[in-house]
Design a binder for these strands. Structure first.
Lengths: 138, 138
DNA sequence: AAAGGAGTGCAATGGAATTGCATTTTTACG
DNA sequence: CGTAAAAATGCAATTCCATTGCACTCCTTT
């Protein structure tokens, strides 16, 4: 399945180095967004800066998107399939659980339409909900 | 009008020192949210830390709310009238203009309703729009 | 007038993003 | 192959803020 991972990287114009394949593989296994620091904990073998630049590269190429959930450190999660260098289409709701501290991409819950004042041009929307997730309410 | 400012501070259980009255007065004159650093530029006579603690106190007492517009530094703006120590009711849309870099509270534009997955409990919602404001499109 | 508490200012700490540079790895081309 | 160029990596250092500790001042209260 490494092949598939490499294909995905190449499709996004990212050179598939060992590190990057590993990081992408790890992202595939995640159900919540992850911060650089948390990622670093998982990859003792690699340098924090390398991971930082890996994330930046993934983000620039539309492979992951970053979420500012108010915890101070941005978190990263895989994009939807149709993101690329010039277009990110991640307009879904993000949910931060105040109990388990995890941040989820609710990809099936898109951001609703809303009005803006006259002559305000909307380019990007970020909607972050804080609360308690299903696993913590159970 | 200093009296009125002092009254407002007292109503929020904030001791009205000269500095705090000045800061509140300055907030009243603003049409956009302001960061600590920007506030510091306006108050050469005061220490950055004092302003930092002033903002924290104002926020804790429901006089201002903070907005994370993605620029790294949080910005602050006056709350709506009915905020207090225990309740903030600032669920309006925030708009960050990528051109002039200002961040506006669109207090007349409330955040629309939306769905969450089953058993997710919503406690707070932050909606930040990036784009171009009316003055920059003109 | 003295004492205590709150506010203020300065110095220092701490965490995280970011950058510079040298080294290693990968790619491209002869 | 093999070497040169380009990209990626790792380390050190920088920078930017938020935050805290401590001393000093101001104000209130007795």
């Amino acid at each position: 399945m490494v092949k598939a991972l490499e294909q995905k990287l190449l499709k996004h114009n990212i050179k598939p180095t060992a590190m990057r394949v590993l990081v992408l593989d790890y992202f595939n296994s995640l159900s919540a967004a992850i911060s650089l620091s948390a990622l670093y904990e998982e990859f003792d073998r690699s340098d924090r800066i390398t991971l930082y630049r890996t994330l930046k590269a993934f983000e620039a190429k539309g492979l992951v998107h970053s979420i500012d959930d108010g915890t101070g450190a941005p978190k990263y999660a895989l994009c939807e399939a149709n993101c690329n260098t010039t277009d990110h289409n991640d307009s879904h709701i993000h949910f931060h659980c105040d109990s388990c501290e995890r941040t989820f991409c609710l990809q099936k819950f898109s951001i609703p339409e809303f009005d803006l004042p006259t002559n305000f041009i909307q380019q990007e929307v970020k909607l972050v909900v804080n609360g308690v997730c299903d696993q913590c309410t159970a």
